[in-house]
Amino acid sequence: MKVLITGGAGFLGTRLAHTLLQAGTLRGETITQLMLADLVAPRDTVLTGDARVRHHAGDLLANIPTLMAEPWDAVFHLASAVSGECEANFDLGLHANLDTTRCLLDACRAQTLGGHRPPLFFFSSSVAVFGSDAAVPLPAVVRDDTLPTPQSSYGIHKFVCEQLVADYTRKDFIDGRAARLMTVSVRPGRPNGAASGFLSGLFREPLAGLPSTCPVDLDTRVALSSPANTVAGIVAVANASREDFGGRTALNLPALTVSVRDMLAALGDLAGPEVMGLITHVPDAAIAGIVAGWPSRFESVRAPRLGLVADTSFTAVLQQYVRDQPDAVGLPQARARLGLPPRA
């Protein structure tokens, strides 16, 4: 089994690569090669030191002819320009999201028409496909049959690509699976251009001893998923049979619904007042407007059929972050409360 991950040097791509390599198989077949394609080379030396791993750096659209010169058995398409970037730079969003996905799908189609079996094609979509339109208001609870009416360029791109994946699947060019990811929190590393980025930075920065601001009302409710639960969902969707996945429509991954106020309370209970003193409330109308348009409650009958459930609490999400990133907790008092040894 030869696997390609676009966005393979990013946070989710790196975590997915580790998960696949540790499993050793995908859909019952041994993984013999894993290609990580991204704008930059991966920095994870464990990955790059694995004999099964190759990597390719550069603009994905420009590099698709090179990447797809050999057939792939599975493609995980995670790469995209994020929400804030797409609003700020319309052309960038079209290039990175629509044009690149269409070109990648066509390369898979050519592979199939050339005699190779249709590759598994996982497309990383987003709950940004949902919004409130004047003619179709967003319901209080989003279900599997809720009509997507995206209200941002990013959401439009994701929904268009979902439909392309469905159609290429209908034509047997690919075995396509689209899953809508919730906001992933807590992400390590540096902030990105996503409107939802504060839902990681609001916790990551104070734990590191850095100031952070909350741009939305504290009673804003959001739908979240931890990194581990998100990757587990991706792998489950990829491994599912066509029948178990159920149709060609994108699947909503499970969500933990929680208010920002309760998220901050969980942080305070775990890490203490020293961390909380680094957080200030600085409203940002642009971010608040985007986030307010996203659904916060989901009910699905499809995801549980694949064994997928939401995270149990935001406390559990924070504990996962601390386990995964112990060196990212900088304040001595916070480290003591979290049971971490003093930093050298």
Results as ranks from 00 to 15, higher is better:
Leu47Ser: 02
Leu47Phe: 01
Thr48Trp: 11
Gly49Ala: 03
Gly49Arg: 11
Gly49Asp: 09
Gly49Val: 08
Asp50Lys: 10
Asp50Pro: 06
Asp50Ala: 11
Asp50His: 10
Ala51Ile: 07
Arg52Lys: 03
Arg52His: 03
Arg52Met: 03
Arg54Leu: 13
Arg54Tyr: 10
His55Pro: 05
Gly58Gln: 02
Leu60Ala: 02
Asn63Glu: 14
Pro65Met: 00
Thr66Glu: 14
Leu67Gly: 06
Leu67Ala: 01
Met68Arg: 00
Met68Ala: 10
Glu70His: 11
Glu70Leu: 12
Pro71Ser: 08
Trp72His: 05
Asp73Phe: 02
Asp73Ser: 10
Ala74Val: 09
Phe76Thr: 06
His77Glu: 08
Leu78Ile: 12
Leu78Gly: 02
Ala79Ser: 01
Ser80His: 10
Val82Arg: 06
Ser83Gln: 07
Gly84Glu: 06
Glu85Ala: 14
Glu87Trp: 06
Asn89His: 15
Phe90Lys: 15
Phe90Trp: 15
Leu92Val: 11
Gly93Ser: 13
Leu94Asp: 00
Ala96Trp: 11
Asn97Val: 11
Asp99Gly: 12
Thr101Lys: 03
Arg102Tyr: 14
Leu104Ala: 03
Leu105Val: 00
Asp106Val: 01
Asp106Phe: 07
Asp106Glu: 15
Cys108Trp: 01
Arg109Thr: 09
Ala110Pro: 02
Ala110Leu: 15
Gln111Ala: 05
Gln111Arg: 11
Thr112Glu: 05
Leu113Cys: 02
Gly115Leu: 08
His116Val: 12
Pro119Ile: 08
Leu120Gln: 01
Leu120Trp: 00
Phe122Pro: 00
Phe122Trp: 10
Phe123Pro: 00
Ser124Trp: 05
Ser124Cys: 12
Ser124Gln: 01
Ser125Ala: 11
Val127Leu: 10
Ala128His: 05
Ala128Glu: 03
Val129Ile: 13
Val129Arg: 04
Val129Gly: 03
Phe130Val: 01
Phe130Lys: 02
Phe130Ile: 05
Gly131Thr: 05
Asp133Gln: 08
Asp133Pro: 06
Asp133Val: 06
Ala134Leu: 11
Ala135Lys: 12
Pro139Asp: 09
Pro139Asn: 09
Pro139Thr: 08
Ala140Met: 13
Val141Cys: 10
Val142Arg: 07
Asp144Gly: 07
Asp144Arg: 09
Asp144Tyr: 04
Thr146Val: 11
Leu147Thr: 12
Pro150Ile: 06
Pro150Trp: 00
Gln151Asn: 09
Ser152Arg: 07
Gly155Val: 01
His157Met: 12
Lys158Met: 04
Lys158Pro: 01
Lys158Gln: 07
Phe159Asn: 04
Phe159Thr: 03
Glu162Ala: 09
Leu164Asn: 04
Ala166Glu: 15
Ala166Ser: 13
Asp167Pro: 00
Asp167Trp: 11
Asp167Val: 11
Tyr168Leu: 08
Asp172Ile: 14
Asp172Asn: 15
Asp172Ser: 15
